[in-house]
Nucleic acid binder design. Structure first.
Lengths: 187, 187
DNA sequence: TATTGTTATACTCTATAACTATA
DNA sequence: TATAGTTATAGAGTATAACAATA
């Protein structure tokens, strides 16, 4: 296989030079997009303790899915010790509370305070706008498609597959060229 | 499984509880997928100076797109000082060379050595496998779609739009429910 | 004994600022 | 003067290890 030549295995290439670009590479591309997202979101939640991480922890608490610090840390991809510091900050700001799990007092449930719930609601607007800003290059049907596929990958990567059936998501996407509302339920 | 369920603006939700999950959120999802990718690729290029970054710098050099350290650093999302260290390591390993740009001797062109080209070739296989591993949950048409859309976003985020025309990408995707090989060229 | 969470320490990574050389 | 690249220093973020509480 030729190297520097136009076209890699995934098809794309060249600007004016006839050579593939870094941005055509999947791994490079996901890094670029992730950093672009992180940048706008950091700005949107700049005054929240923990920044984007604090936002997601708060979100998990509001959603009622923060049943232990360890599992939360794993899903966020951070060390459990860092989760401790993060929760210290959020708790000090009066946004969440730690409550021992009655059935296993080693675990802590993370519950949002009223202020925390309110704060999260206030922030979810700007954060949503930041997302839109990032995705606005994509015309609408493609935008929804991208969101759905990304969601499928995330569920898979975090071992939460039961929820999203990739085959169904895909058949939906394939079957409906235009007529499209948000991806609907997944199961 | 619940049937009619709480829904967020982007459609998805709940496992068994009827509540949305962190993984349904776009921003959270992209972080999860990025980290999952980073993890497998770091393993694949563990012995390369600079890890994944070193791999991409080497790739840019091989592609002939590494015309200055500053522009490279910007595309990679790192500081120019870090690029210096990174190139020191790669050069010391005999993988790239710095050559002053004749037309502006402040710039350095980054060129791959023969060893560097060879090394990159050797690594691109395992890295490609790592990508496949990450994406294998998606049935084929969706996988190609995801790659194409991500590429479009990356080009946009890094200001290289001229290359990829989103409208064309999307019309291709929309128009072709099943019958489709890899997205082909984009322009 | 194994696991959750906490704390203290050490380390890695990154940014900041100051410098050289080119333009 | 402004920019590309380098270097040294300081800081932020992170991981490591040891500890307490619970199972």
């Amino acid at each position: 296989m030729s190297l520097v030549t136009p076209q890699r295995s995934d098809g794309t290439a060249d600007p004016e030079t006839g050579r593939p670009q870094l941005e055509d590479d999947f791994g490079f591309a996901i890094g670029v997009v992730f950093r672009a997202y992180a940048k706008v979101v950091e700005a949107a939640v700049a005054d929240l303790p923990g920044g984007p991480r604090g936002y997601f922890v708060l979100m998990a608490a509001v959603q009622g899915h923060a049943n232990s610090q360890r599992s939360l840390a794993e899903r966020l991809g951070i060390d459990r010790t860092i989760m401790t510091y993060l929760l210290d900050d959020l708790e000090r700001a009066g946004l969440v509370e730690r409550k021992p799990d009655p059935s296993d007092r080693r675990n802590r449930h993370i519950l949002p305070t009223e202020l925390g719930t309110q704060r999260w609601q206030e922030l979810s607007g700007p954060v949503g706008l930041a997302e839109q800003q990032l995705l606005e290059v994509l015309p609408e049907p493609a935008r929804a498609t991208f969101r759905a596929l990304l969601r499928t990958l995330a569920h898979h990567a975090n071992g939460r597959d039961a929820v999203t059936d990739p085959c169904q998501v895909v058949s939906e996407l394939d079957a409906s060229p235009k007529s499209r509302r948000p991806p609907r339920r997944t199961a």
